[in-house]
Design a protein around this nucleic acid. Sequence first.
DNA 1: GCCAACGTTGGC
DNA 2: GCCAACGTTGGC
Length: 162
Amino acid sequence: MSAAAARRYWLVKSEPDVFSFADLCASEDQTTYWDGVRNYQARNFMRDGMKRGDLVLFYHSSTEPAAIVGIAKVVREAYADHTALDPRDPHYDPKSKADAPTWMMVDVRAVEALVNPLTLADLRGVKGLESMVLLQRGSRLSVQPVTAKEWAIVYRMGMKTR
DNA sequence: GCCAACGTTGGC
DNA sequence: GCCAACGTTGGC
């Protein structure tokens, strides 16, 4: 065994009207920078947890139906979110400075779409997903960890052909 | 559109 | 350091 850390798993939320999984697939190299995270807990997961090669569930929020729709992977680890430094950007944060950025982003690349998008209704009640952060009452975290066990269950459900 | 839940701000 | 007020998220 190498000393390399085990791959970790994550879930990110995006409103599809703003940026959808299809938008990611249509991006150059199917890759984009994940800007606009303005929550400390979510930032810490990106900054401290996300490593190259980690896999990410792509979740569409505030849409009907809200669902996990695809899989992406981390291709660049955390670096400064430049949109926080731009006064004209809607995500501008005057507290963030170029020499000491408050907010970070990573780069993610699309891997594949789920054969079956998985709505919250699909996921609720599934054995093994009881503790999934996404399903917790009042959960609003836009970047959240997923356990290997949860990942395996979601992947199996999402890729099962009918 | 409603509203519960949550995170942040700011007065004290 | 407490906590009320406020703004935002996001399911429904």
